[in-house]
């Protein structure tokens, strides 16, 4: 179960895993996510389903190695190995409505989860403007895949090493300038990016859907750890979301809640790095862990 059939490394930190779970692949829809555990003592971490194939019986996850669990995944998740647990699909599928013109915005890792939505809009005959942003050109992934489902593709890099120099919000501004008739923007990426995307579209009154990524444990509505404020109401991201109207989301609260285990996360990562270094040096792990 949960065998890794393929892996692709996009950069030093970003990698793709294709995981075998036919039942889940069959049930998955764009916008949904899974919860993954690397080993029995691992955390349960939510990851958006970036793609799925019923024929291959697989789901595709794109992971950024930033914390202990994801760094560990980068180290241990090789083709032929298996994850300890994969469960889903969780959350409500994205609502891909009848739209004539949409902009699909992906920032960094967010490029992966916004892709199935761009594809779904394209299949329904919409004019799709893709806007993808990265820090620099070395971090770019899925450009071709994205281009194949977009009528226009705007690439933004922080340092201008590819596409336009600037953030995805600059890309959005450019797109709106050329296409004032954009009916909906779908923006997925780090919370601060989604916040600014929502700010960028608010004056133009363009509906903006964002996909939130709060801390959660079970993913079935049981813990309430993923609660977010949307339009002043408490919502559980795992069952009510993860897609919400970006103009209604309290992003500052979301960002504050995302940081609530920062100290513990740092401790876990440092401890892991220390042990990893020992392992590489062929030494016993440090007794303090």
């Amino acid at each position: 179960m949960y065998k890794i059939l393929a892996r692709e490394d996009f950069s030093d930190v970003t990698f793709l895993l294709e995981v075998h779970y036919p039942m889940l692949a069959k049930a998955a829809k764009p916008g949904q996510f899974v919860i993954v555990m690397v080993h029995a003592d691992g955390e349960r971490i939510p990851l958006t389903i970036a793609d799925f194939s019923i024929e291959r019986g697989t789901i595709t996850l794109v992971v950024q190695a930033v914390g202990k669990t994801t760094r560990e995944m980068q180290q241990t998740c090789k083709v032929g190995t298996a994850l300890y647990a994969v469960v889903g699909p969780m959350g409500m599928p994205s609502h891909v409505g009848e739209r004539k013109k949409v902009a699909c915005v992906g920032g960094g890792l967010g490029v992966a989860p916004v892709y199935p939505q761009a594809r779904a809009f394209k299949q329904r005959g919409a004019y799709v403007i893709g806007i993808i942003g990265f820090r620099n050109k070395d971090l770019i992934f899925w450009e071709d895949k994205f281009a194949s489902v977009c009528d226009e593709l705007i690439i933004c890099t922080d340092d201008g090493s590819a596409g336009i120099k600037g953030l995805v919000t600059d890309g959005i501004a450019k797109a709106i300038e050329v296409h004032p008739d954009i009916e909906e923007v779908i923006a997925i990426g780090p919370p601060v990016m989604m916040k600014f995307c929502a700010d960028a579209t608010r004056p133009h009154d363009i509906k903006t859907m964002v996909s939130l990524n709060p801390i959660m444990v079970d993913g079935t509505g049981m813990c309430g750890g993923c609660r977010v404020s949307v339009g002043g109401e408490m919502k559980f991201c795992c069952v009510d979301g993860p897609d919400f109207d970006g103009h209604q989301v309290d992003f500052d609260e979301l960002m504050s809640r995302l940081a609530r285990f920062k100290g513990e996360e740092r401790e876990a990562l440092e401890r892991w790095t220390r042990n990893e270094n020992c392992r590489l040096m062929g030494e016993e792990p440090h007794p303090s862990g």
């Binding site: 349960r44 444990v217 813990c223 309430g224 285990f261 513990e264 401790e267 401890r271 862990g289």
Partner: peptide
């Protein structure tokens, strides 16, 4: 915390063993 989150982190995820168990 909801009691569910608090207890699930401890009982199911063994947070009392952090950092040996990953969930804080």
């Amino acid at each position: 915390y909801s009691a569910n989150e608090f207890l699930t982190r401890i009982n199911l995820m063994q947070a009392f063993q952090f950092p040996e168990a990953d969930t804080p």
